[in-house]
Design a protein around this nucleic acid. Structure first.
Length: 758
DNA sequence: CAGTGAGCGAGCTTCCGCTTGACTT
């Protein structure tokens, strides 16, 4: 019989710890929380001191039953969940649900998974910290109250199945506000002047210390430069240094994997989970930048042997993040000496990123030399400035440099010639170019996570799910935007004469950025109007302070909740008692041909344009907005475009040929069948009858389901991933060498035979 | 899922934080 049962949160952790403890210990995992508030009603007894109604989650019944059995057989149960608010609550729920006797129960904690840390923990057990547990209960109850009282208001006032919550509603608000900033942004242009100089035996670039408003002013200056002398006025040389970034937390890993590897937030987390489960990295949901002493010394070894002693610098980083709980280490390789790992390519890439970041964090500063050269223009108050930077010692830069979000930085290593005051330089060309100011950047998934973390909203385990929730609710949409073109003016001074002209500049392209939808904006405005407290960016930080007071034993959790709920609930009641639902309507103008009123509205199925007013006796026509349009920015001409589809091209084989745009993009409809148009190939507004018929006949040969008379029940079907074989309740993938259109029954039976072994 | 948009009403939806499976082709 096992004498000791140790319960941790994660099965991978359990596996590792088993190796450190003797045979008299059995280590099991709770798989996170085992109980939660009941989902029937609120799960909270408001009138009875907010008593929570906890139930074992259905998917955890099996785990709990197993733990219960093992606990009854053990002489001591060690509750080894994480040392933070949630971990303490997990320990408490386990003690409650497994009905553990206090005299045979111990609470232990450790921050690193090493033999030493664990044996030390076992030597100094403590009791469950009820204050910390109460802080968690307050957090849980507040989130439930907010989520389950606000969401139904939205169902009633706006649209069914919507949701609101302390975290998600603020995340959406960030996106909405940023989009409005962008709409309101008035871009302006200025002329910047760049000179290519020669001096000290080298060619180098410098920029004028002023920007001109018009091409005329810029040209006048270039004309002045024709006969000017350019004299070095001042040379400054300053030493500088750069320091490495701390090792990864969940949030910084998501950001860098997005910037450097183009991974989505959820993709990064899936890959990291897999690396963690195979023992290659430490835990991937963490807000700590701390490294264990073991990791520090391993990093020191790696740096010294790979790069030399002078590259090594041991550093302990401090976590600055608001509300960080630091139950884990930073994300790092389990074995620092492994520069690479086996496995799928994306996992290898993510591992390499983690390795580089962790190792670089333990490397020396880079030493640089910055130089600035001031150049006077004779008979002018303006001057040119050349800036250069030389790396004297690369240090950590040898391995890794953190990327930045906006890619406008022109920071490249430029070496300036050695020049001294009074020397004269000459130009090969001087150019004035029109440069537009750039609106604030839209968020992508990872930069939104960064912002949420800065505000202390959400936790490492919820960043990825939050991002996917707000997209599932269709509050925001992740999209690309093609670049637009505009003309920019320039003037060029070369070989003693000035020419003017314009050239085309591409701008405004976006990749995987988050855009608010019409519903997202409407819901945000509605919540802002009626529940400004919940929507305040400081709301989470304010209540976190109160949770801390509860955790320190200086505040009663039910009193805290009561103080919040009284106000909140009365606002909920008064909002519900208001009769009117939230409507949105905006007039776009009148139809240029028919003179009908054009309106944009939000209905049960989202945003649409209405053409014609029922009150004026006409029958209105309707068209949905496209995915990338929204009620606030759509223009009259864009709205008119929407009515150009569907187009009726005529009759083919006794059925009409219709071109339209549906949920999955443009399509041809014929004989009640829909065929998607290829994105780049066919424009739905221009496509001809002949081309449409061509597409229809191409598609006609593609006929599924296929079945065989000799074998009823066997079918070749077309699914989400292409054709497959369905037989006796099972599905089989069709290997590449077969043609699903023409393959015979024997081929199918062969495939089934080959795959029925598994 | 390939459209819809009146109005009514039944029955459903929903939160945040801990964790991985079990479905699949």
């Amino acid at each position: 019989m096992e004498e000791n049962l140790v319960i941790v949160e994660s099965p991978a952790k359990a596996k590792t710890i088993t190796k450190f403890l003797g045979e008299s210990y059995i280590v099991k995992s709770s798989f996170g929380h085992i109980r939660d508030l009941s989902k029937k009603n609120l799960g909270i007894d408001i009138v009875n001191q907010y008593k929570p109604d906890y139930i074992v989650s259905p998917e955890k019944k099996k785990v709990v039953a197993e733990l219960k059995k093992l606990a009854s057989e053990a002489s001591v149960v060690w509750l080894a969940s994480d040392e933070d608010r949630e971990g303490e609550a997990i320990a408490w729920h386990l003690a409650q649900e497994l009905k553990l006797k206090p005299e045979k129960t111990r609470r232990i904690v450790f921050h690193e998974i090493t033999k030493e840390a664990i044996t030390n923990a076992v030597k100094s057990p403590r009791d469950i910290n009820n204050n910390l547990v109460n802080a968690q209960q307050a957090r849980r109850v507040l989130d439930r109250l907010v989520g389950f009282e606000l969401s139904p208001i939205l169902w009633k006032k706006i649209k069914s199945s919507l949701s609101a919550g302390r975290v998600q509603s603020v995340a959406v608000k960030l996106i909405v506000e940023r989009e409005r900033e962008i709409s309101a942004f008035a871009d302006e242009s200025k002329y910047r002047v760049y000179a290519q100089f020669t001096g000290g035996g080298k060619s180098f670039r410098a920029e004028l210390n002023t920007r001109f408003n018009t091409l005329g002013e810029a040209t006048a200056f270039l004309n002045h430069c024709k006969d000017s002398a350019f004299t070095v006025d001042q040379v400054q040389v300053k030493p500088g240094k750069k320091s490495p970034a701390p090792p990864f937390t969940t949030s910084t890993l998501q950001q860098e994997a997005s910037r450097k590897l183009n991974f989505s937030v959820s993709q990064t987390m899936k890959l990291a989970q897999s690396l963690y489960e195979s023992g290659k990295i430490t835990y991937m949901r963490t807000d700590s930048v701390n490294l264990s002493s073991m990791a520090l010394s391993a990093a020191r070894n790696v740096v010294s042997t790979e790069f030399g002693e002078e590259y090594s610098k041991t550093r302990q980083y401090q976590t600055k993040t608001k509300g960080a709980q630091e139950a884990h280490e930073a994300i790092r390789p389990t074995y620092m000496q492994n520069r690479q790992v086996d496995g799928p390519k994306p996992e290898q890439k993510l591992y390499e990123l983690i390795w580089k970041r962790a190792v670089a964090s333990q490397m020396a500063d880079a030493k640089t030399e910055k130089s600035i050269i001031d150049i006077c223009v004779s008979n002018s108050k303006y001057r040119f400035i050349a800036e250069g930077e030389v790396i004297l010692f690369d240090g950590f830069l040898k391995l890794y440099l953190e990327s930045v979000d906006d890619d406008n930085s022109e920071e490249k290593q430029t070496i300036l010639p050695k020049l001294s005051t009074g020397e004269v330089v000459s130009y090969s060309e001087i150019q004035a170019v029109e440069k537009y100011s750039v609106h604030p950047a839209r968020y992508n998934e990872a930069s939104l996570v960064k912002k949420l973390e800065e505000l202390g909203i959400g936790r490492p385990s919820t960043y990825a799910p939050t991002i996917s929730t707000i997209q599932q609710r269709e509050y925001v949409i992740k999209e690309d935007r093609k670049a637009l073109e505009r003309n920019i003016g320039y003037a060029l001074l070369k070989a003693g004469s000035v020419v003017q002209g314009t050239r085309i500049e591409k701008y405004g392209s976006e990749h995987a950025k988050l855009f608010p939808t019409s519903i997202g904006m409407l819901v945000t405005d509605y919540l802002m109007e009626h529940f400004p407290q919940i929507m305040d960016y400081n709301f989470t930080a304010d209540i976190e302070k109160q949770f801390d007071e509860i955790a320190e034993g200086n505040k009663d959790w039910t009193e805290m909740i009561d103080a919040f709920y009284k106000d909140f609930h009365s606002k909920v009641e008064s909002t519900l008692s208001q009769k009117e639902t939230q409507r949105y309507e905006r007039a776009l103008g009148t139809h240029p041909q028919t003179g009908e009123a054009m309106l944009v509205k939000i209905g049960r199925y989202g945003a649409f344009v209405q053409c014609g007013d029922a009150e004026s006796g006409a029958v209105p026509r309707y068209a949905s907005l496209r995915k990338n349009q929204n009620i606030e920015t759509i223009t009259l001409s864009e709205a008119l475009e929407l009515f150009k589809l569907p187009r009726d091209l005529g009759v083919y084989n006794d059925s009409p040929v219709i071109i339209g745009v549906g949920k999955f993009g443009p399509y041809v409809k014929h004989n009640n069948k829909f065929i998607s148009l290829k994105k780049t190939k066919d424009d739905p507004l221009c496509i001809t009858y002949d081309r449409a018929v061509e597409i229809i006949s191409e598609n006609a040969s593609d006929c599924f389901p296929r079945s065989f008379d000799e074998k009823p029940g066997l079918q070749i079907l077309k699914g989400r991933f292409g054709p497959y074989i369905a037989f006796e309740g099972k599905n089989y993938r069709i290997p590449k060498q077969f043609d699903p259109q023409n393959m015979g029954l024997n081929d199918c039976l062969e495939i089934i035979k080959n795959n029925s072994g598994k």
